Simulated scan of single mutants.
Amino acid sequence: MADMVDPQTEQKLIDKAQEKLVKRKRFEEVFPILVDELMAYCTSEGMPQDAKDWFKRSLMYNTPGGKLNRGLSVVDTVEIMLCTDATGNKTRELSEPEYLKAAILGWCIELLQAYFLVADDMMDKSITRRGQPCWYKVEGVAEIAINDSFMLEAAIYFFLKKHFRSDPCYVHLLELFHDVTLQTELGQLVDLITAPEESVDLSKFSLTKHHLIVVYKTAYYSFYLPVALAMRLINVEDEALYKSAQDILIPLGEYFQVQDDYLDCYGAPEVIGKIGTDILDNKCSWLINIALASATEEQRAVLDANYGRKDAACEAKVKEVYQAPNIDIKSRFEAYEKESYQKINALIEALPQDAGAVGKGGLKREVFRAFLNKVYKRTK
Rank of each mutant, 00 (worst) to 15 (best):
S149H: 04
D167F: 12
I80H: 00
T379W: 02
P32L: 12
C83S: 08
V22Y: 11
K243H: 08
F256D: 03
G65T: 12
A301S: 09
L212D: 09
K125E: 10
G88D: 04
M60G: 03
P64N: 04
I144R: 15
D3P: 13
L68G: 06
H163A: 01
N373W: 03
K360F: 05
A324N: 10
H178W: 11
E297Y: 07
K25S: 12
V78S: 01
F159Y: 14
I250W: 07
Y224V: 07
T9P: 02
G267F: 01
L13W: 11
I156F: 01
L363Y: 05
R57Q: 13
T218H: 08
P133D: 03
V78K: 01
I80C: 01
A230Q: 01
A316D: 09
Y262W: 08
V22T: 14
E37M: 15
Q299P: 09
L351A: 00
E45C: 08
K217W: 08
W286T: 14
I348A: 03
D124C: 13
N373T: 08
A350R: 15
A2L: 13
V200I: 15
T87F: 09
F371C: 13
M122T: 02
G140T: 08
C284L: 10
E349N: 15
N326S: 14
G71A: 07
F164I: 02
T184K: 01
A291L: 02
I288L: 07
L13S: 14
V271A: 10
R129L: 07
D120I: 10
A40L: 15
T296N: 10
Y221D: 03
D148T: 06
F177R: 00
P196R: 05
I290Y: 03
V141R: 13
R165M: 14
R332I: 05
C83E: 08
L186P: 02
P196G: 00
A142M: 14
C314W: 01
G362E: 04
N345P: 00
L207F: 10
N235M: 11
D124P: 05
M81Q: 05
Y322G: 03
K67E: 04
L186G: 02
E45P: 00
A291H: 01
